[in-house]
């Protein structure tokens, strides 16, 4: 399925569209704590942009941008950011994911809470993006034996 299909329209449109999709996904992630959206939705949109890259240019050509090893590292990194912020709050004497206790050099508690939620959104976004691309690559590169009609 993910072999390269020569079509100049699909390749040009994808090349133009992918940066805008990624900018929009980053916007959704960064504004997640005071507008609709957040880490999950932004991560799905960011993953969809890479899925579009794989669909348009083939798995071989996009292998140097997104490989399975890199995706595994990114998924683990997202989970590490999420649970790490929670554990830091736990170590500083608060509850798990209690952002107010985070040791950040900011003057007021609400600003520290906003930064903590932003860190959580970034971690969730990275993890969801990597898992979405991994699911797609796993389905698309699965070899079926026998007939394929």
């Amino acid at each position: 399925m993910i072999v390269q299909y020569e079509n100049i329209i699909i390749k040009t449109i994808s090349r133009i569209l992918i940066p805008f999709i990624q900018i929009y996904a980053l916007y959704v992630i960064m504004h997640g704590h005071y507008s609709p959206g957040g880490g999950f939705q932004g991560g799905v949109i960011l993953g969809a942009s890479f899925i579009l890259l794989v669909l348009a240019f083939g798995a071989e050509a996009s292998q140097k941008r997104i490989s399975l090893k890199k995706l595994t590292v990114l998924a683990s990194l997202g989970l590490l950011i999420f649970s790490g912020i929670g554990l830091v709050a736990l170590l500083m004497g608060g509850n798990y994911l209690d952002y107010g206790k985070l040791p950040l050099p900011l003057e007021s508690i609400p600003k520290i809470r906003a930064m903590g939620i932003l860190g959580i959104e970034i971690g969730v976004g990275i993890g969801v993006m990597a898992i979405m691309i991994t699911i797609f690559l796993a389905i698309a590169s699965y070899e079926t034996e026998g007939k394929n009609d």
Binding site: P36, G37, V44, A48, I51, A140, T144
Partner: peptide, 27 residues
């Protein structure tokens, strides 16, 4: 609006691509 956002991005975007890949691989 948050649920609508999730439904539009996951339901109409990502899961459709997954289903099409699965249909292409099976029958």
């Amino acid at each position: 609006v948050d649920v609508a956002f999730t439904e539009a991005s996951v339901g109409a975007g990502a899961s459709t691509v997954f289903f099409i890949a699965a249909v292409f691989k099976t029958t």
